[in-house]
Structure formats: C-alpha cells, structure tokens
Design a protein around this nucleic acid. Structure first.
Length: 576
DNA sequence: ACGCAATGACTCC
DNA sequence: TGGAGTCCCTTGCG
C-alpha cells in the first residue's frame, strides 16, 4: 500500500509541540508592525492581555482555541456600539501561528520556522527544517525513503529484462555550474517553460505567463525573437514537431494548442477548447499537458477539467471524444509519451494521481496504473531513454521514482524528500531527467527553501541521483537570489537552462572533470565563493548585516542585481 | 522600507 | 458539494 502517499499533512493548530523552539530568544527584533496592524482580522488574542510586553507565555491554551465568533467581533464591535479598547501589542508574535515566544521569518539569511507547524521540508511534525533529517546539507544528500522493492519476482524481471537496457556505468557527469549568460529583459512575466531546439544547438525557447514565446540564441546573444501573439496567457508546454523542427506546438491556459512557424512567428491554432469565449472560470478550459506521439503523428492534449483529447497532427482533426483521465473538474498537469513505446502515456493531475494509459485503448476506467501521491502531482516523466522508469514531482515535497513501470507500481521504488513546495506565485517545480544520462538516474530540479550561503539566502538548483536520493550538486550564483523553478538540461551539451522569475540563465560547466573519474558530488558551493574572481556578497548588500534586518520581509539579502543583457560571456564581464 | 497585488490549492463549514 | 477564508522562505513595483 502506498502508505506515504496517504500521509495527511494536517496543520493542526491545537497541536502544541514546543520541543524545537530553542533558538528563538536571542535576536529580539522590534515588533513587527504588519502583524500588529492586522489585529482586526486575526483572532485569538483578546484585548487586555495584549499589554504584556514580553516574557514567558508558553501556556496559552486559549489563544489556540480562538473562537471564530471572537474573530468577527472587533469589526462588529467597532460599528456596533461596543467600542473595544484600542490596544497596542508590544509583544512579539509569530507571524505564522500568531503565538508568542518565538518568531518565524528570516534572521539574516536563515529562515527560522514556526515550531508550531510541521516541518516545512518533510511535512512531519516535531521538528523544523533546520533540524529536519531530510535537510539538504553541505555534505549530505537527500535521504531516500527506506522502502525499496527488494527480492520480489518483479525484481528478477527487472534484473533480467530491463537492467540490461540501462547502462550501469554512470557517464562522466559535468555539472553546468558556471553562469554563461542570462537575460532579464526578455520576459515581462515569470518564465513558465523552456525547451531547447532539437537541431539548432544553441537555441533556447521560452514561454512566460503572459503567453509570450521567446527564441534565443544564447551564443549569438543578439539573436533574440519574441512572439507575443501566439497565446494570450500562460504558455504551459512546448513540443517540437520532430518531422519538421521549424514548427513548435504550444499549449496554453488560453485553452488553445498552436503550431507556430518559428521563422515567421505565424501560429495556426490546432485546437481551441474555448470556442465560445469567456463565460466564467467554471467553463474556461486551460491546457497544461501536451505531448506528441511521433510514430502516430498524434497530439495528446489534456485540459483543466480532467479530459484528454487526441488530435491528428496533420489533419488537425480530433480523434474520438474527450476521455476523462483524471478526476472530473481537476486539472491535468502534464502528459508524457513513453519514449520507447509512444502509445504508453503518463498523465499527472491535480487529483493527486499519476496514471499510465495505453492510448490505443482509452477509456476512463482503463488506466494501466494509478500512482497515488500525497498532493497535487506537478509532473510525471518516463525516463528519457528506456522509458522504463517514472519520476514524478509532487507538491508534498517528494520526488517519487518507480524503477520499472511494468513491475509493482503500488508504491514507488523511492521517495526523495526535496523542497519544491507549491506556492501560487511560482511556476510549479518539475524534476527533469538529464537526457544525456545513459543510466537514467540524474535529475535536476530547483529548490524552494533557501540556504544560507555566506550570509545570502539563495535557492540552488539541485542535481539529484534518483537511484539513491543523493544530492550530486547544487548550483547557485550569488546574483540569482530568486527561486528557479524551471530548469532544462540540454539534450546533447553540458548546458543547463534556468528560468527564474522573469530571467533566463544559461549555465556551463566550469571545470573539466577527469573523464576517468566516477561521478562524484561536486561542491559547487565552493565554487561560488571560493574563486577569487567572485566577490563575496557580504558587505555589499543593502541594508543590513547578517543578523537581523528582515523584519517582515524575507529576502533579507538581495545580492546586487546584475543585468545580463547582451554579451554576458563568463561571469565577470557581465557585471557593470 | 513598506505595502500591495497577482492568484491556486486546500480546509472548513 | 461549494463558497469563503486562509496561506510559511515570492517578486517586482509604487
């Protein structure tokens, strides 16, 4: 039983685990204006006792059990005669749980969690991210889930039939860790997807939340094109027509699939799920999942109501009726055709499932397998060569790996705890395979929670060995202080493309690695600050020294903003 | 330096 | 089942 998938991460306010709140008593900040000003809506604290300035306040049973009725009262009291006394709270209140005695938020570059909440990383109660056993630390990889398929007959099948197809020799692994170039003026809104051109080696395509399509030659940096008329809102997915790589298929939340001629920018709609226009969010269909069955010339598209559509690529005709592949009314977040057997389809959805289908025999009940997850599944991909593995990214902060799709799929072969939480303002994180990795183990994914790197809170891009859960490398740069949810590895070259907020970055390996050397964990952190050419971010930054400052806002340290417009070759030069 | 908005899943009633 | 309210590490702008 896929027990972990069942885990409910209830945020139980009445739970009182005060065990972990050690360190919250040293840096006494001024009290946060924002939290006090919100006294009208946050319930709980009744008037009078607010006046205590600080101090031991652990035992506040009542504060937890705040009555909803009491919540409404201040406003009602305000206009309804009974004038509540105006109180000014001078005691420090946790902005998360509104209790005193601790404070959540950044202290310098370190984020202090609210100890009343489950761990922000693994979602288990009783500790915070700072002490989480799954925490990504300098020398420790992500810890794999203990459960593995061991010694079953399926393992025998796996060993005898599949393993041979997967190279056990891990190839030389170069971490693209040096910022080659970047561009922060390309997109006006956050980047939502990236794709390398399949044949033009240095061309990267990008889509953003506004529907803008960007084409960028990151070697000839002046060659940039944007097409803003392809879609009217979020560009969710891009696929090349393998028979004609001058044509790009794009899927959007505007409910259309477009095939765009990359030379002219002229797009022809292949499918429009909202032919009658806008009549409210309850009927507006958005498209997130799309893939191409190249053998059959079949375009597979899924909407935000759980339906799958099949489309003949050439005739542009729909094939059959839409088929419900996920819970009715729920978003299908992604589709992927098996690279070895294109008729096998993997779908992932907001209904907390990923499903495997045979597109030749589609019926709502005909899923070959349903893979249960703890929360929304952001993405699911077959492994890029053999197609025998599945990797999913789920909003419960776990990457799940199934080693053999024809084996026992009841529970994943591995769960890798990794911070890639859902945040409505971010493009969803998706762990992506390295297409160059014969052994089908390396994956790349951005990290949500920050780490303190020499006084700067940065969000690295993680390379993970999915066969062990080990963290192979973490890539970051002091100039990139934003989260990087979108990452794509080049199909042939050692290049990483990153979409971070509105910016796009290209990374290349800094050092040649001895080809005979086994893949090892590379300390990219050392690179970041170890090289003499780099400035330490410390003294440079805006206001504050390392420890307080943050007040209400996180992001204590913003590294100096660097504009990579053109000709940003290598790091140093690009800086003004 | 602060306030705010954009905006999606989830929970609770 | 549905609508309102809530929400922890966002980001950029005014």
């Amino acid at each position: 039983m896929a027990a972990p998938a069942r885990a409910r991460f209830v945020h139980n306010r009445s739970r009182r685990r005060a065990d972990e709140d050690d360190s919250d008593d040293e840096g006494h900040q001024r009290q946060d204006a924002s939290s006090s000003s919100s006294s009208d809506d946050d319930g709980g604290e009744e008037e009078e006792e607010e006046m205590e300035v600080e101090g031991s306040d652990e035992e506040e049973e009542e504060a937890v059990a705040d009555e909803p009725a009491a919540r409404e009262s201040p406003a009602a009291a305000g206009r309804g005669g009974r004038k509540g006394p105006i109180t000014i709270s001078l005691k420090k209140v946790c902005k998360v749980c509104k209790k005193t005695g601790h404070e959540a938020g950044f202290k310098g570059a370190v984020y202090i969690d609210c100890p009343m909440k489950p761990c922000f990383l693994c979602k288990m109660p009783g500790h915070t991210t700072l002490t989480c056993p799954h925490r990504v630390a300098m020398e420790h990889g992500v810890i794999p889930a203990p459960r593995r398929n061991t010694n079953t007959s399926l393992d025998y099948v796996f060993q005898s039939q599949v393993k041979g197809k997967i190279s056990m020799v891990k190839p030389r692994f170069l971490v693209p860790n040096q910022l080659e170039c970047g561009n922060i003026k390309f997109h006006q809104r956050r980047v939502t997807c990236l794709e390398f051109h399949p044949t033009k080696n240095n061309v990267l395509l990008s889509g953003d939340k506004k529907g803008l399509l960007g084409i960028w030659d990151y070697v000839k940096l002046h060659e940039k094109i944007t097409y803003d008329s392809v879609h009217s809102c979020i560009l969710n997915s891009m696929k090349f027509d393998t028979a004609n790589d001058g044509v790009l298929y794009t899927a959007s939340s505007d409910g259309t699939i477009s095939s765009t001629d990359l030379d002219t920018g002229i797009g022809a709609p292949l499918l429009n799920l909202n032919p009658d226009g806008w009549s409210g969010p309850s009927t507006w269909r958005m498209i997130y999942g799309m893939d191409l069955n190249t053998e059959k010339g079949l375009l597979l598209v899924a909407d935000s109501f759980g339906f799958l559509y099949l489309l003949d690529r050439r005739s542009k005709e729909r094939i059959g009726q839409p088929i419900l592949i996920h819970k009715k009314g729920s978003k299908v977040t992604g589709l992927h055709c098996n690279p070895a057997q294109p008729e096998v389809l993997l779908s992932s959805g907001n209904d907390h499932f990923a499903r495997i289908w045979d597109t030749r025999k589609l019926d709502p009940k005909s899923a070959l397998a349903s893979l249960a997850h703890g929360r929304v599944v952001n993405s699911g991909y077959f492994s890029p060569r053999s197609g025998n593995k599945i990797m999913t990214t789920c909003q419960d902060n776990r990457i799940r790996v199934w080693d053999y799709i024809f084996g026992n799929l009841e529970s994943p072969s591995r769960e890798i705890v990794h911070s890639h939480d859902f945040n409505r303002h971010l493009t969803p994180f998706k762990a992506e395979w390295d297409p160059k990795d014969y052994s089908e183990t390396v994956a790349v994914i951005g990290r949500y929670i920050s780490e303190n790197y020499n006084g700067v809170a940065l969000h690295p891009i993680d390379f993970i060995d999915t066969s062990t859960g080990k963290l192979l490398a973490e890539v970051m740069d002091p100039d990139i202080t934003t989260i990087s949810p979108v990452n794509k590895l080049h199909p042939q070259d050692d290049i990483l493309a990153t979409g971070s907020s509105r910016s796009i970055f290209i990374w290349k390996p800094k050092n040649e690695v001895d080809p005979t050397e086994e893949r090892t964990s590379q300390k990219v952190k050392e690179y970041v600050y170890g090289s003499g050419s780099r400035k330490k971010p410390n003294g440079k930054h805006d206001n504050s020294s390392d420890d307080d400052s943050d007040g209400g806002g996180g992001k204590s340290k913003k590294a100096k903003k660097t504009r990579f417009t053109h000709t940003a070759k290598g790091k140093g030069k690009s800086k003004a």
